[in-house]
């Protein structure tokens, strides 16, 4: 295998691996989300803080859209990295933008969880709250992982071809996060 062919193979392997990883996460999140749907469909009352008046105290739904925007910005930024195999000089900068958005997202999630918990609304309180914590927490965890990956891409000095490929992988992952978060917001608050 010549050097160029090897690079092609690495790109193909990376791309395949990323799609498989995404499929795996989709199944994981799908299991949690379908659990949520089944529990909600099977229950007679479904009381959430934002349905019983508490939301007036804190515009939770608005806040979530705010967070969604953060993620959106991150994804938009990463979209500019399009084109595998092409060296992207500005990749570290974009990685930092993604990392910043991710950190803000995780911080907002922790903040709201803390706010709920301080009012005695913990996972054990009710199944709706337990679902809120698990779904939000899972996305936050996945976003945290993506943030770490972004920092890694920004910091590790690797050849330009490889860096561009990592940027493209990062972008795919963050698109997935975007989709997961829209699903979560929609499923938890809008339906």
């Amino acid at each position: 295998m010549s050097a160029i062919a090897l690079s092609d193979r690495q790109g193909r392997a990376a791309s395949t691996g990323m799609w498989l990883f995404i499929a795996s996460i989709v199944m994981f999140y799908g299991a949690l989300f379908s659990g949520y749907v089944l529990l909600r469909a099977g229950s007679t009352v479904w009381e959430t803080p934002w349905r019983t008046g508490l939301a007036a105290e804190w515009p939770i739904a608005v806040d979530h859209w705010f967070r969604t925007m953060w993620l959106g910005i991150a994804v938009m930024q990463s979209r500019r990295l399009s084109g595998t195999g092409v060296p992207v000089a500005g990749l570290p900068r974009f990685s930092w933008v993604i990392a910043l958005a991710g950190t803000a997202f995780v911080w907002r999630c922790a903040d709201i969880a803390g706010w709920l918990a301080s009012r005695g609304l913990v996972p054990a309180t009710s199944v709706p709250l337990a679902c809120w914590y698990v779904l939000t927490g899972t996305v936050a965890l996945l976003v945290a992982g993506g943030t770490i990956a972004a920092v890694w891409v920004a910091l590790e000095p690797v050849p330009a071809v490889q860096r561009a490929r990592r940027g493209a992988m990062l972008q795919r992952y963050w698109l997935l996060m975007f989709v997961l978060w829209i699903t979560t917001v929609g499923g938890l608050y809008l339906v």
């Binding site: 499929a23 199944m27 994981f28 659990g35 996972p123 054990a124 199944v127 698990v134 899972t138």
Partner: peptide, 24 residues
């Protein structure tokens, strides 16, 4: 890849039930 995540999701639920006192 596709089936194990479902059990992991279920394990998260059961872990919450055991550790955090939820009722999934």
């Amino acid at each position: 890849l596709l089936a194990f995540p479902a059990l992991q999701g279920a394990a998260v639920f059961q872990l919450m039930d055991r550790v955090a006192g939820t009722s999934f």
